[in-house]
Computed example of a mutant assay.
Amino acid sequence: MYQRVRRRKVAEINVVPYIDVMLVLLIIFMVTAPLITQGVKVDLPQADAEPLDEDSKTPLVASVDAQGRYYLTVGANDKEPMSAEEVAILVKAHLAIEPGTPVVVNGDGAVSYDAVIQLMVMLQNVAGVPSVGLMTDSVGE
């Protein structure tokens, strides 16, 4: 008669389907991640923020007053109202001469949030400012 040959059971897990699923998920996440991230990158001030060093470069101060007019101040220069595009072009020109100069936005408390954001977008897109600081008053003032 026939003798049955008993096979040993294999106790291995086939991981190939798991690798395929993992690679598909990786591709999906790589494609969707840039679409999810939106907005303007801003270095937000902290509650116990330190003032700028006295020996650092004089910052460029882009201001928005309560009426939504834009100004650019370098040191103690007089201010003339201008458009957000003009501010960004002047900042770009100044940064070409003196790279690494800090740029801060000084917005009036009564100005609309949109006016400040539009200025920050112009500074980043047109002038190429890597990070924009926000000026605030001290709590005690």
Rank of each mutant, 00 (worst) to 15 (best):
T37R: 15
G39W: 12
V40P: 01
V42F: 13
D43M: 08
L44Y: 13
P45K: 02
Q46W: 01
A47W: 03
A49W: 00
A49P: 00
E50V: 10
E50A: 09
P51S: 05
P51T: 02
P51H: 01
L52V: 00
L52I: 06
E54Q: 09
D55N: 12
T58L: 04
L60K: 02
A62V: 04
V64E: 01
V64I: 13
V64L: 03
D65G: 05
D65V: 04
A66L: 09
G68E: 06
R69I: 00
L72C: 05
L72I: 09
T73C: 02
T73Y: 01
V74H: 12
G75N: 10
G75T: 10
G75H: 11
A76Y: 09
D78P: 06
D78F: 07
K79Q: 15
P81T: 13
P81I: 12
M82C: 10
M82S: 12
S83W: 04
A84R: 15
A84N: 11
E85N: 12
E86T: 14
V87I: 13
I89M: 14
L90F: 10
K92S: 15
L95A: 08
L95Q: 14
A96F: 04
I97K: 15
I97F: 06
E98D: 15
T101H: 06
T101Y: 05
P102I: 03
V103A: 07
V104L: 13
V104T: 06
D108R: 03
A110H: 05
A110Y: 02
V111W: 02
S112W: 01
S112P: 02
Y113N: 07
